[in-house]
Write a protein that binds this DNA or RNA. Sequence first.
DNA 1: GCCACGCTTCGGAAGCGGCCGAAGCGCCGA
DNA 2: TCGGCGCTTCGGCCGCTTCCGAAGCGTGGC
Lengths: 228, 228
Amino acid sequence: MTSLAATAALIGDPSRAAMLQALLPGEALTAGELARIAGIGAPAASAQLKALAEGGLVAVHAQGRHRWFRLGGEEVAQAIETLLGLAARPARRPWPHDEALRRGRLCWHHVAGRIGVGLHERLTGQGWLEPEGGGWVVTPRGEARLVALDVDLAAARRAPRFACDCMDWSERRPHLAGGLGRELATLLLRRKWLVRIEPAATDTLRRRRLHPTPEGLRALEAEFGLAA
Amino acid sequence: MTSLAATAALIGDPSRAAMLQALLPGEALTAGELARIAGIGAPAASAQLKALAEGGLVAVHAQGRHRWFRLGGEEVAQAIETLLGLAARPARRPWPHDEALRRGRLCWHHVAGRIGVGLHERLTGQGWLEPEGGGWVVTPRGEARLVALDVDLAAARRAPRFACDCMDWSERRPHLAGGLGRELATLLLRRKWLVRIEPAATDTLRRRRLHPTPEGLRALEAEFGLAA
DNA sequence: GCCACGCTTCGGAAGCGGCCGAAGCGCCGA
DNA sequence: TCGGCGCTTCGGCCGCTTCCGAAGCGTGGC
């Protein structure tokens, strides 16, 4: 009953790893052959093979003056295969995000995720906002709609930046940031069109998701033309 | 594209292994939590986590002054699970032998495996041999049968030991050794009741198996009462 | 009975890797 | 704006592991 670290360390040495890979097809090899494969001398190979045998990674059978080594079983081959798969992956992986987190979350007080980029797209595409100086300003039509929704535009204008883009790391498109983004998020949460979901037990990152309520889905479609 | 050894070595350190096991459920933990779990200081933990991240075994996400770490994906968890399974096994495993090798093989010129111990059982159980001085001698009835089979008893008697037991390492019961054992094997091969099978490509240990021919199966049953 | 061969054990040297303490950087709250 | 906090980098020490050469042991062949 050895530990995870001890077992992995057995595979983690270049010489031993070369031996194990040579044994992966299932055939037995002698200590001398394995030494040659690993590129080390007979004494070193003997010590390494002893360690592998004590760890159960290889099985040994003495026959005359030869000692035959083979993998310690199906599970050993499987473990090595799995590790080879890991080793072959591109090293750097993007932070994996679960589906609920992709749908909606808070990003520095504004709505991010699919809902956030959807809002951004509708607000700009329907002429509520127009670009100016790297950010956005509200059009007369947009102001009327936002005021009707009870968005506190005065509070939004007191922020350092009124409205600007924030690249969404899960959608790779921008969502709305700045004071307007914060006020929009505040509104959606106050009206309970979106609710915070506590991280579940099966959860990964301890971030709350933003989940649309049934009423919220209807409202988002009615007010912004945002499809579910 | 790192190597098998490098990947395994990442898991092979006790501190890193403790961190990975803590991350196994899938939840994200901060660098500080992982340091406490691994029982090391913050600097050491930082270095270890950096190595794990560069190897793709964990993913990192900075949030405020915390850094959240989680496993680098499904495959990583799978690899660790597999290694844990390996680690939980009893360390020493017996040399695994394939079925064909268990059935029949040559052991120092005599027949070993299930066929060998079966022969031993029939020869002694049917009164062809009787014990004497730690070995076996032929009974009159046995001698008649063996001579009828064309076994060269004179040659068998010229051997240092006429008939004795040899513990069979796959069956854990004795098969027949000594001069009689050798002569019996010679007979069975000469009559092609058993044939040598060359090791196949999928083979493990490079030993030839002994395989009964259809005719051999009938003869072994008829002459010795040996069931297939 | 001797030598050749395969493998192991022993002893010593070198290198790698992990750990800590001190210092530095960035984020957060007052 | 300042201090606390989490985390990182740097420098240095220590221990473990790996390797080789020399010698020893058992097997197999002459």
